[in-house]
Amino acid sequence: MKNENLYNYILGIADNSLILGQRLGELTGHGPNLETDIACTNISLDLFGQVRSYFQYASKIAGDGRSEDDIAMLRKERDYKNVLLVEQPNTNFAYTIARQFLFDAYHLVFLRELQKSSDLTLAAIANKCIKEVSYHERFSSDWVRRLGDGTEESKSKMQEAIADLWVYTDELFHQTEADKAMVAEGIGIDVIKLKEEYYNYVAGVLEESTLEVPDIKYFQKGGKQGIHTEHLGYILVELQYMQRAYPNMEW
């Protein structure tokens, strides 16, 4: 592939939305009440919309006849490049919200920079997505505040979720080979530069929520290299089920 770095770079971005959208999709019909259920599904829909834009572009770049669905559903476990954070399960609503917030806060600053990409397609996608993600971040941070500063029970659940998922935040700011190549070309974002802003912002929201910033020095990583937690396999079982069980058919 001529543009392999760009292709991998796009997948690195899109897989996050794909896997997170899939996780949120599990919740549809099972939310804490109708209003919240509808809101979470909206976020899932936004994310899948983003995924389609990215993969349609990736499909063009790959130029080997693979469609957006082939790219989304027919890769092997190790070829998914999403960060570990987004594949973590909906253990309870605090985990869903913590995962969402910790990702949204990153996603928002990331897209803000991606709008400046010299790749006009990526810049345009970022420009569209950022409006959606601004809303996601507003939704998830509001819920962090509600659960953090709600009842004793919700506070302890929220604190636990933040503490458990914190170990996956550092990976957001790891550079891959594709990242480095794309940064050099002015297409990609130097995520390392976003790190300080991210942690400052997140700490601010946690403080408002009367939650503690976890004191953790050792972080998990690997998603960006395709080395995932055990959760991803099960996500793929469902995501890929139809395409694997009935290969080469149209739906």
Binding site: N33, L34, E35, I38, A39, N42, Y135, R138, F139, D142, R146
Partner: peptide
């Protein structure tokens, strides 16, 4: 249903 005005606005947007 919403707990306060801010949430009512957000829910209204989604619903």
């Amino acid at each position: 249903h919403a707990t306060d005005a801010d949430m009512a606005l957000e829910n209204a947007r989604d619903v």
